[in-house]
Measured scan of single mutants.
Amino acid sequence: IINNLKLIREKKKISQSELAALLEVSRQTINGIEKNKYNPSLQLALKIAYYLNTPLEDIFQW
């Protein structure tokens, strides 16, 4: 999986903590996703895309 979450999140000036709060997950979860240590569920990936107002395929590429 190619993961552009960190790049997109930083472009939008959103911290890991802010995104985690919006998604109701821990900051460690966001960190793990960004470091490719954790693959989000489809539901979480869709929520990330929604809150970042970015197409899912721009954030994650399988």
Rank of each mutant, 00 (worst) to 15 (best):
residue 16 Q to M: 09
residue 21 A to W: 07
residue 33 I to G: 01
residue 3 N to T: 06
residue 32 G to M: 15
residue 42 L to D: 05
residue 39 N to A: 15
residue 46 L to G: 05
residue 18 E to F: 07
residue 53 N to L: 05
residue 25 V to I: 12
residue 39 N to G: 11
residue 49 A to V: 04
residue 2 I to S: 12
residue 46 L to C: 14
residue 54 T to M: 08
residue 45 A to I: 05
residue 8 I to R: 03
residue 54 T to R: 04
residue 43 Q to I: 13
residue 35 K to M: 14
residue 23 L to F: 02
residue 30 I to Q: 01
residue 24 E to D: 13
residue 25 V to H: 02
residue 34 E to A: 06
residue 59 I to Q: 00
residue 7 L to T: 14
residue 43 Q to M: 12
residue 35 K to R: 13
residue 53 N to M: 08
residue 32 G to Q: 15
residue 14 I to S: 03
residue 59 I to V: 06
residue 29 T to D: 06
residue 54 T to A: 08
residue 13 K to A: 10
residue 8 I to Q: 05
residue 13 K to Q: 13
residue 42 L to E: 06
residue 52 L to G: 02
residue 61 Q to R: 09
residue 8 I to T: 06
residue 59 I to T: 01
residue 8 I to N: 03
residue 21 A to E: 13
residue 42 L to W: 10
residue 7 L to V: 15
residue 18 E to N: 09
residue 29 T to F: 14
residue 30 I to P: 01
residue 3 N to D: 02
residue 41 S to A: 05
residue 5 L to W: 00
residue 28 Q to D: 15
residue 32 G to S: 13
residue 29 T to W: 10
residue 56 L to Q: 02
residue 42 L to G: 05
residue 56 L to D: 00
residue 57 E to W: 09
residue 37 K to Y: 15
residue 7 L to I: 15
residue 18 E to R: 12
residue 24 E to H: 15
residue 36 N to P: 03
residue 32 G to T: 09
residue 44 L to S: 02
residue 26 S to V: 03
residue 12 K to L: 08
residue 20 A to Y: 01
residue 53 N to T: 06
residue 58 D to Y: 09
residue 3 N to I: 05
residue 6 K to Y: 05
residue 33 I to D: 02
residue 52 L to N: 00
residue 38 Y to P: 03
residue 14 I to Y: 07
residue 46 L to P: 00
residue 35 K to E: 15
residue 57 E to C: 11
residue 5 L to R: 00
residue 60 F to P: 02
residue 48 I to Y: 01
residue 10 E to N: 09
residue 57 E to G: 11
residue 15 S to Y: 10
residue 33 I to M: 07
residue 53 N to I: 05
residue 41 S to V: 04
residue 5 L to D: 02
residue 55 P to A: 07
residue 54 T to V: 13
residue 36 N to S: 12
residue 47 K to Q: 10
residue 18 E to K: 13
residue 35 K to C: 11
residue 35 K to W: 08
residue 15 S to E: 05
residue 45 A to M: 15
residue 39 N to Q: 15
residue 56 L to V: 13
residue 59 I to N: 01
residue 51 Y to L: 11
residue 48 I to L: 08
residue 28 Q to R: 13
residue 44 L to R: 03
residue 12 K to G: 04
residue 2 I to C: 13
residue 21 A to C: 11
residue 11 K to V: 08
residue 5 L to F: 01
residue 43 Q to G: 12
residue 22 L to F: 14
residue 58 D to E: 14
residue 48 I to H: 00
residue 35 K to L: 14
residue 32 G to N: 15
residue 28 Q to S: 13
residue 58 D to I: 07
residue 37 K to T: 13
residue 35 K to A: 15
residue 36 N to K: 11
residue 58 D to Q: 11
residue 39 N to W: 15
residue 9 R to C: 06
residue 33 I to H: 01
residue 5 L to T: 03
residue 10 E to C: 08
residue 31 N to Y: 10
residue 23 L to Y: 01
residue 18 E to P: 03
residue 56 L to N: 01
residue 2 I to V: 13
residue 62 W to P: 09
residue 4 N to H: 12
residue 25 V to L: 06
residue 30 I to M: 05
residue 42 L to F: 14
residue 32 G to V: 09
residue 43 Q to W: 12
residue 21 A to D: 13
residue 58 D to C: 11
residue 6 K to G: 08
residue 15 S to I: 04
residue 51 Y to R: 05
residue 10 E to S: 08
residue 44 L to N: 04
residue 8 I to D: 00
residue 38 Y to V: 14
residue 62 W to L: 14
residue 37 K to F: 13
residue 43 Q to H: 13
residue 45 A to S: 06
residue 39 N to F: 15
residue 49 A to W: 02
residue 30 I to A: 01
residue 9 R to G: 01
residue 33 I to Y: 06
residue 1 I to S: 13
residue 30 I to R: 02
residue 47 K to M: 12
residue 45 A to K: 10
residue 60 F to H: 01
residue 48 I to F: 04
residue 38 Y to N: 07
residue 20 A to N: 01
residue 6 K to M: 09
residue 37 K to S: 11
residue 29 T to I: 15
residue 5 L to G: 01
residue 56 L to W: 05
residue 14 I to D: 00
residue 9 R to Y: 04
residue 9 R to E: 02
residue 7 L to W: 09
residue 11 K to W: 07
residue 13 K to D: 09
residue 54 T to K: 04
residue 15 S to F: 04
residue 61 Q to N: 12
residue 15 S to H: 05
residue 49 A to C: 06
residue 50 Y to A: 09
residue 40 P to V: 11
residue 2 I to D: 08
residue 33 I to W: 09
residue 16 Q to G: 04
residue 1 I to K: 09
residue 7 L to H: 14
residue 11 K to R: 14
residue 11 K to H: 10
residue 17 S to R: 10
residue 42 L to H: 08
residue 58 D to V: 11
residue 47 K to H: 05
residue 4 N to V: 04
residue 21 A to M: 14
residue 19 L to G: 00
residue 37 K to A: 10
residue 58 D to W: 08
residue 48 I to A: 04
residue 51 Y to D: 01
residue 42 L to R: 08
residue 1 I to G: 09
residue 4 N to W: 05
residue 37 K to L: 15
residue 9 R to Q: 03
residue 19 L to K: 01
residue 49 A to R: 02
residue 28 Q to E: 15
residue 34 E to D: 03
residue 33 I to C: 03
residue 25 V to G: 02
residue 9 R to L: 05
residue 33 I to K: 02
residue 27 R to C: 10
residue 2 I to M: 11
residue 26 S to I: 02
residue 51 Y to P: 00
residue 9 R to P: 01
residue 21 A to T: 13
residue 2 I to F: 12
residue 20 A to F: 01
residue 36 N to T: 06
residue 22 L to P: 01
residue 3 N to R: 03
residue 26 S to C: 05
residue 15 S to V: 04
residue 34 E to Y: 02
residue 53 N to H: 08
residue 36 N to D: 09
residue 50 Y to Q: 08
residue 54 T to P: 00
residue 57 E to I: 08
residue 15 S to K: 10
residue 1 I to H: 12
residue 48 I to G: 00
residue 44 L to G: 00
residue 38 Y to M: 13
residue 36 N to V: 04
residue 40 P to N: 01
residue 16 Q to T: 07
residue 15 S to D: 06
residue 27 R to I: 15
residue 48 I to M: 09
residue 34 E to H: 02
residue 35 K to I: 11
residue 31 N to A: 13
residue 40 P to A: 06
residue 26 S to D: 13
residue 55 P to C: 07
residue 41 S to I: 05
residue 31 N to K: 14
residue 53 N to R: 09
residue 13 K to R: 13
residue 50 Y to T: 07
residue 36 N to I: 04
residue 51 Y to T: 10
residue 56 L to R: 02
residue 35 K to G: 10
residue 8 I to S: 04
residue 28 Q to Y: 09
residue 24 E to L: 10
residue 7 L to G: 13
residue 30 I to Y: 05
residue 61 Q to E: 13
residue 60 F to V: 00
residue 55 P to H: 05
residue 23 L to E: 00
residue 62 W to D: 08
residue 6 K to V: 06
residue 1 I to F: 15
residue 41 S to Q: 05
residue 44 L to A: 03
residue 60 F to Q: 00
residue 12 K to N: 11
residue 30 I to K: 00
residue 38 Y to E: 09
residue 3 N to F: 03
residue 20 A to R: 02
residue 20 A to I: 03
residue 40 P to Y: 04
residue 12 K to Y: 04
residue 31 N to P: 01
residue 17 S to E: 13
residue 57 E to H: 12
residue 16 Q to I: 12
residue 11 K to M: 13
residue 39 N to D: 08
residue 22 L to M: 14
residue 35 K to Y: 07
residue 46 L to F: 07
